[in-house]
């Protein structure tokens, strides 16, 4: 546990350098360009070291860049977390199964009631600073890591689903069936609740971003930025500063870790 990683200090240096570079770019370029910096984000975090509150991971979604009909982020999420391996129990109807299968990330298309303006956006766990799911969980299985990621400890989850009652974003899924072919990196099994965890093992292994962000960037949309919201020089912080964004259900004052621009 006490392994020292020599890269750690170097990392910090790189981080600052990139931050400075990003800051200069952001100051010069139009806000819309900022989102393309996502792929330039350096690897942060080190293996084998406890996460700290020095970082708070978050996402910024620019709905103007989110295309109708594109589901690259949804598919990438399913592949990353083994959700594409879910199979409908033979005796279940397709309609009922559609409501019972687990979905961590989904696309929604909305229209403004007055103007009819259409918005497309991905929806997932909003990683609140004050998550209602964590408050209500009787066993403490639902918890927020020091770095702001809301996770379910499946070893302690008893499957009461109270967190699903409490979540304002319908972000959680209950596993209704026995699971047999999980991925090694994403354990999941019958009777527990799960949701987006910001690709938590990527965080711990020091990877740069999440599966959905990679997919969105690879497709050339660049609608999602991932990063450390506590680092003022991180691309996400700069983008958040540069463009106006909103939280979903701001009225609940949950201080979400996922922000939406252009909504």
């Amino acid at each position: 546990m006490k392994q020292q990683h020599p890269e750690e200090t170097i990392d910090q240096g790189r981080r600052a350098w990139f931050g400075l570079a990003a800051g200069v770019t952001a100051a010069v370029a139009a806000p819309g360009v900022v989102l393309h910096l996502a792929d330039a984000a350096p690897a942060v975090g080190t293996e084998g070291v406890p996460v700290t509150a020095a970082a708070r991971w978050g996402l910024l979604i620019d709905t103007n860049k989110c295309l109708e009909g594109c589901r690259d982020c949804v598919d990438a999420c399913a592949r990353e977390n083994g959700l594409d391996r879910q199979t409908k129990p033979a005796a279940q109807s397709s309609a009922a199964w559609a409501d019972q299968r687990a979905v961590w990330l989904r696309k929604a298309k909305l229209a403004d009631n007055l103007t009819g303006r259409v918005t497309n956006l991905p929806l997932m766990c909003q990683h609140c600073e004050h998550p209602p799911c964590v408050d209500v969980c009787p066993t403490g299985a639902s918890f927020k890591r020091a770095d702001g990621i809301v996770v379910v400890d499946r070893h302690v989850c008893i499957g009461c689903r109270y967190c699903m009652m409490a979540c304002p974003y319908q972000a959680r899924s209950f596993i209704h069936e026995a699971v047999h072919d999980q991925l090694t990196g994403v354990p999941r099994g019958k009777g527990c609740v799960e949701s987006c965890n910001l690709c938590v093992s990527r965080r711990d292994h020091g990877l740069a971003s999440t599966a959905c962000v990679d997919a969105c960037t690879a497709a050339g949309h660049g609608a999602i930025v991932f990063g450390d919201m506590k680092d003022p020089a991180s691309p996400i912080s700069l983008a958040l500063k540069a463009m106006s964004s909103r939280q979903l259900r701001e009225d609940l004052a949950l201080n979400t870790g996922v922000r939406y621009a252009g909504l």
Partner: peptide
Amino acid sequence: DCHAAVPRGAPLS
């Protein structure tokens, strides 16, 4: 019940 009983999927490190 939850963990894969064979190595499955790419390890991240």
